[in-house]
Amino acid sequence: MATQDAQSATSSQRLDKETREKLVTVVRHTVLLGWSFVVLFPLYWLVSMSLKPPGQANSLPPDWIFLPTVYNYIQLAQQSDFLAAFANSVVMVAASVVLVLLIGVPAAYVLSRYDIPMQRDVLVWILSSRMLPPIAVVIPFFVIFRALNLFDTRIGMVLMYVSINLSLVVWVMKAFFDGIPETLEEAARVDGATQFQGFRKVVLPAAKPGIFSVAIISFIFAWIELLFGLVLTSFEAVPVTLFVYSFIGSRSIEWSMLAAASTAMIIPVVVFLVAVNKYLAAGLSFGVVIKE
């Protein structure tokens, strides 16, 4: 009798544990679904607004059921200024990401592996470039760009994007390089590799997740930047963010065209994230060796 009671109690405890686990799983999934709805609803609102006719885009109450149209996108594609600004942003942002990686990754490696005089001060000086608000430095940059004939040039905007993201790349990549044991490079040098070969064939593959992470962040920060494009360009090197901003007038806002241009602006970011995510996932699957 006592054995049966013990078995019943054990079964009841097991059932209660399984019930609690299922309840926790249901609650967790419900919370995640609710949060996903909150995060994705603005994107849905933007895309749906871009697919509505101009007179229906900002109607109140909103029309939840409507006949989608690509009229706004056709009008957008027929504007040569938008196509030129879009091409400017693609070229300038892509070039800035490549350049900031070429400068920032080796710099982070040197700061991680070598004892540089006043190294802490150098790191703080690099980080200080991100501490100032953009509005505080845009006027000095304007004066410098006019003096160097870089105003309204793609090269000038590329250099500006590099200056924005360089501190981020250096600090993040230094943390990754700090986590990679120097014994791996020593083993490569024992096998006959030079120091540069050890950096290229051993350290860089191990730091691949960090490289793609900072590439993604640098691309997004440069792609959405507006203030410097507003002050440092006028016609030739206008970025797409400035063209999107042009739909906001002093007396009215072209909501449908603004939504269409904003949606088109999101597409390159999504494409870049999807393309890089494959390599990022591959790098994470190999893992990064962390110092003990």
Rank of each mutant, 00 (worst) to 15 (best):
R113F: 00
G34C: 13
W255A: 05
A282V: 13
W45M: 15
K17P: 00
K17V: 01
W255L: 03
T233G: 10
R146C: 04
G283Y: 01
V172Y: 03
S36V: 05
I155F: 09
E236S: 14
L184R: 08
A282K: 15
V162N: 02
G156E: 07
P42R: 04
I211A: 09
A2L: 15
P239F: 02
V244T: 15
P205S: 09
W223K: 03
E185L: 08
W171E: 08
W171Y: 13
T183K: 08
M92P: 03
G104E: 00
V124N: 10
I220N: 06
Q7M: 14
T241Y: 02
D81Q: 14
I116N: 11
V202C: 04
L280D: 07
P106I: 02
A260Y: 04
V91R: 01
T25D: 14
R20Q: 10
A207P: 02
L226P: 04
D63K: 11
L166G: 08
A77D: 05
V98R: 00
V169T: 13
P117W: 00
A281H: 07
R189N: 01
L33R: 05
L159F: 14
F86G: 03
L227T: 05
V270S: 09
K201I: 08
R113H: 00
S252D: 12
L43V: 14
V90L: 13
L230E: 01
V27R: 14
V47S: 06
V70E: 07
Q4K: 09
S96L: 12
S50A: 15
L23P: 03
N149L: 06
V240S: 01
L101Y: 08
A84R: 11
W45G: 11
G283F: 00
P62Q: 00
P134E: 04
A84C: 03
V124R: 08
K291T: 08
G229S: 00
P134K: 02
V143W: 12
Q7P: 01
W45N: 14
L232Q: 10
S218Y: 02
E236F: 13
I164A: 07
S167N: 08
A107N: 10
S256A: 14
V203N: 06
A6Y: 10
A275D: 09
Y161T: 06
L242A: 12
Y44G: 14
T10R: 15
P268L: 08
F176Y: 15
V124A: 12
V70S: 13
Q56L: 12
E18M: 15
R154F: 01
L76S: 00
Q4H: 05
V169A: 10
R146S: 10
Q7D: 13
K208L: 12
V24L: 15
E254R: 12
L166N: 08
W64M: 11
E21H: 07
Y114H: 06
F145V: 04
L150K: 04
P133I: 02
S96H: 12
V27T: 13
K174T: 11
A9G: 02
I116M: 15
K201T: 12
S218A: 15
F151W: 09
I253G: 09
E21R: 14
P68T: 07
A107K: 06
A85P: 04
F219A: 11
F177I: 06
V238P: 04
A95M: 05
V100N: 01
L230T: 06
L150E: 03
I180F: 05
Q56A: 12
L127T: 07
V124H: 05
P239C: 02
R146D: 06
T241M: 10
F272Y: 10
A237S: 11
K278H: 07
S128R: 14
G55T: 01
I216E: 11
